[in-house]
Write a protein that binds this DNA or RNA. Sequence first.
DNA 1: CTCCCAATTGACCACCGGTTAATTAAAAGT
DNA 2: ACTTTTAATTAACCGGTGGTCAATTGGGAG
Lengths: 188, 188
Amino acid sequence: MSPRKRASEELTKEMIIKEARSQFEKTDFQTVSMRNIAKNLGCSHGAIYYHFKNKADLFYTIIEQYFSKLNLLIDEVVEGSEADENKLQQVFFKFIEFGLNHQSQYELMFMLRNKEVDALAQKAANESYQKFANTVHSLSAQKLSVAEVWSIFLALHGFVSYYRGFVDRFEDAKAAAEVHVNFILKKM
Amino acid sequence: MSPRKRASEELTKEMIIKEARSQFEKTDFQTVSMRNIAKNLGCSHGAIYYHFKNKADLFYTIIEQYFSKLNLLIDEVVEGSEADENKLQQVFFKFIEFGLNHQSQYELMFMLRNKEVDALAQKAANESYQKFANTVHSLSAQKLSVAEVWSIFLALHGFVSYYRGFVDRFEDAKAAAEVHVNFILKKM
DNA sequence: CTCCCAATTGACCACCGGTTAATTAAAAGT
DNA sequence: ACTTTTAATTAACCGGTGGTCAATTGGGAG
């Protein structure tokens, strides 16, 4: 019936990503659908497939951006002017904050075990962890072992993966996060 | 066409639970479907609804059993004859082992954030945690604070929730688990 | 031997999902 | 002005889900 619309209403990759990201802020991967993204954009769901090969393609594009974002957060802390001890604490904090303020993304980045998205995401996740590990290692006073850094990561991950969905924003778990981070710091 | 079968082939609640549990060992909650359970049982999916109100009902029944199982594992360790220090370590181990050998169940017990199953499961989860916390507290040499026990739980949870899906059985992560448990035990 | 009723079936409902082929129209190129 | 390219729409396909329900079946009770 209604034909195509253009010029003023051109559909761009960016628009799709933006909408997908927005839906993604509210629910999880499984729940977000191509059809719903299209509906909210006021276009047909078929149109999205002109810009993205498939759902995994679209979502991996988004995930990549969030890995960059996380890496950037770590860099920012490192380039700060505080004492290393404080920086270390801040890195832990930032990680938790990121995880709880981008829960759906964190899920896809570090929790999803899914054939579709995996191969690519796993690689990015490993790289991201390497950055984290190197940073933690170089910031710690008495140099930590590889295993210790890994345990630290797991402990942080445990915090995020538990409070995720249970709490809406990082602020709601800030106090608990403080306690947990101190617990980790005590172990080193 | 094919008529009803009875007596020899009677469908019982136990059979349904068994099959659901079995499917549940292989995939997650979302993936396991009433229809597939029925197919594997050689009955129609409608029949299942005669025995269980709905999917959540069926699955909560299963989850309850697994909470009991976890509680039992903790009890077994406590009633052992070793030193408290060793018992503590064993409790941590058993928790991880349970989590990785019953991944889908663990997911439903401690990870799923879902309106359907939640209300009931959350209560059971809290009770189960209380048991864990009390046990850890009473086994620790210099008595741990409530917050410390919680952090320990989160650290263990981090291990399980990371290796889940990444590894098939506990054995595949046993070495890593040892390292992680030692990290947690350090300085306490 | 018949009748009852628990147990079971299978069709049906109303959704959801991703994906794709055919079609249309706007914009760009000539 | 015309063709070509490009971006969008449409509608259908295919497969899945949970859930309901009238009709049926057959085992066991009387």
